[in-house]
Simulated scan of single mutants.
Amino acid sequence: MSLIGEERKDYILNLLNLEGKVKTTDLVDNLNVSSETIRRYLEELEEENKLKRVYGGAVKINISREEPSHLKREVLHAEEKRIIGRSAATLVEDNEVIFIDDGSTTLHIIDYLLNKKNLTVLTNSVPALYLLIDYKNKELLSGDIFFIGGKVSSLQSRVVGSMAEKMIENFYVDKAFISIDGIMLGKGITSFDEERGQFARKLIDQSKISVVVTDSSKFGQVQFYKIADFNKIDIIVSNVDAPKEWKEQLTQKDITWIQAE
C-alpha cells in the first residue's frame, strides 16, 4: 500500500470516529477513487479489525451493546487507562473537592493523588472507596472521603439510582472526573446504562469543571443513554489527540483536549 493509500485509510477511520459510519459512494466522491478501490480499503481495514463492512459502506466496530462487568473493564486497554489517569490527576489542586466516578479509567486517578494536600474526594465506586480508604489508613492520602449511598449494582461495583442522585444534589465539587462508554461529535457522551447516565448528568450539573476521561476505543461510539452534549464538557483527557475533524467544534465550545503522555 502506497503512502497515499495509507492516508486514505486514515481518512476513512477518522470519518468513522466522527460519524460512526461511512458510505462507499461518499468515499468515492471525497477521495476521488473508484468504488473497487474503496471496497479494497474497507476489506483491508476489516481484516485489521478496525471496522465492520455493511451494505453500502462500513460502521465502526461496537464490541458489545452490554456493559462489561467492572472486573472485565479493568483489564481492557489497561495501560492506556493508567496513562490517562495519571494525566487527569495533574488537574487536581490542593484543597479541592473532587468527584471520581465508577469507571475503570477514573480509578487510576487515585494512585496519583498521593502528593496532593487536603483533598475532599467523593465517589460512588466501591473499588475507588476501598482504594481511598487503604491510602488514607496508610497516611498516604490527605483529606476526607465521602461515599455516595443508594442502590448498589453488584456487577459494576457502583452505586446509582434516585437516592444517589438525591444525595449528590447536596454537594458542589470543583472537578468531576467522568468515564463514558461512547463519544461522538453531534451525539455527545453516552452510557450503556440509563441509571449511570442519569447520575453522571446530575454530577456534571453539580461540578464547576467536568472532566471526561476516555481511551480512543470510545470514539465514534454511541451507546444507549445520552449523558450530555459536548457543551456540558470542559476538559477531555485521552490517550490520543482529538480527531482532526472534531477540533473546530471543540474550540468553538471551549473544550480543552489533553493528550495523556
Rank of each mutant, 00 (worst) to 15 (best):
D144K: 13
I98Q: 02
L42Y: 06
I227R: 04
T256N: 05
A89G: 11
S2F: 08
F147W: 00
E36L: 10
L51A: 07
L27C: 09
E169V: 02
K72Y: 11
I148K: 01
L27F: 09
V160K: 09
E43N: 11
G5P: 02
Q156N: 14
Y112C: 06
R196Y: 14
E245K: 14
Q249H: 12
G161F: 07
F219R: 12
V75D: 11
L250M: 01
V160F: 09
N49K: 13
Y172E: 14
L107M: 12
T123G: 07
E36W: 01
S207C: 07
T214N: 02
S210R: 00
S216V: 07
A260H: 05
E47S: 10
A164C: 00
R82G: 06
V240F: 04
A89F: 03
R73S: 05
G220T: 07
D215P: 01
V211W: 00
V240A: 02
T37C: 02
K81Q: 03
T105C: 08
D193W: 13
L16M: 08
S154D: 08
M1D: 11
K202N: 04
E46M: 08
D205V: 11
I258W: 01
L140V: 01
K9Q: 12
E48N: 15
L155A: 13
E66T: 15
L131D: 10
V211G: 01
K151N: 10
D94A: 14
T256P: 01
D229E: 10
V212W: 02
D26Q: 14
D254T: 06
L114G: 14
T105E: 03
L15D: 07
I180Q: 07
E47V: 12
V28L: 03
I227N: 03
Y130K: 12
A200D: 10
E48G: 12
I133W: 06
D241G: 13
D229C: 03
I255Q: 00
V33M: 03
Q156A: 14
D193V: 15
Y135D: 04
Y55C: 00
E165S: 12
L129K: 13
F199L: 15
V237C: 04
I100S: 02
